[in-house]
């Protein structure tokens, strides 16, 4: 029994290396002559390892919960920044919105649904992405064989954001907060490897696009 004869304190001090010479001698003797004590020592050793493992898992769990909290905080912060950037639909005139959503004429024939790169295994959907509504998820049919570059252009053909999708990725998620896009409109992403470039358009607040 742990509670008997101060066994527990003795074991704790033994494992902390704090026994006096005299106590250590008694401990060693008990290990040789007292089977119950020896069994108790075995239990205690296993308890310490099991407790350490339990503790590690508890701390990791705490860190994972903290990570969730931080991600929620960042999302909220991102949304606040987003609204700061966008203000309100009422801040744009009809002409301004029309200009922001105007397509790049020279890009039209090159768009992904019409032209697919053989070396870029992107699963292209017919869907019209609206990043104000949902994150953009690029999915590949197989892990990509080299780093891909991803560039976002506005409809003035100005690069507003770039990134690298690392080799072996199978998908890539992009949120509006990540891109730092500050205005509604029509945008394009260019996905390139060293051989080919794939072009696709997407929108930010497509619901603000003036009807023709």
């Amino acid at each position: 029994m742990f509670a008997e004869n101060n066994n527990l304190e003795l074991l704790e001090r033994h494992f902390a290396g704090k026994l006096t010479e005299e106590e250590q001698a008694i401990f060693d003797k008990s290990m040789k002559t007292d089977a119950d004590f020896k069994e108790l020592v075995g239990y205690f050793e296993d308890f310490m390892v099991g407790l350490e493992d339990f503790g590690d898992k508890a701390v990791l769990q705490e860190l994972k919960s903290l990570e969730k909290t931080i991600q929620q905080e960042e999302k909220m912060e991102g949304l606040q920044n987003l609204w700061k950037g966008f203000f309100d639909k009422a801040d744009y005139t009809l002409e301004q919105l029309a200009a922001l959503f105007r397509p790049v004429v020279t890009y039209e024939p090159l768009l992904a649904h019409a032209h697919r790169g053989n070396d870029i295994p992107l699963i292209v959907t017919e869907k019209e992405w609206d990043m104000a509504v949902e994150d953009m998820v690029l999915t590949f049919s197989e892990p990509i064989s080299s780093d891909f570059s991803l560039a976002i252009e506005n409809n003035q053909r100005q690069v507003v954001w770039t990134s690298i999708i690392p080799e072996a990725s199978i998908d890539f998620t992009l949120t509006l907060q990540d891109t730092n896009i500050q205005a509604p409109g029509r945008y394009y992403f260019k996905l390139s490897n060293d051989k080919q470039t794939l072009l696709q358009e997407f929108f930010v607040h497509k619901d603000w696009m003036p009807k023709p």
Partner: peptide
């Protein structure tokens, strides 16, 4: 933590 190196009783305690 290395589960592989833990005995059955140690894992049970955890």
């Amino acid at each position: 933590s290395n589960l592989d190196s833990m005995s059955e009783r140690q894992q049970l305690v955890s």
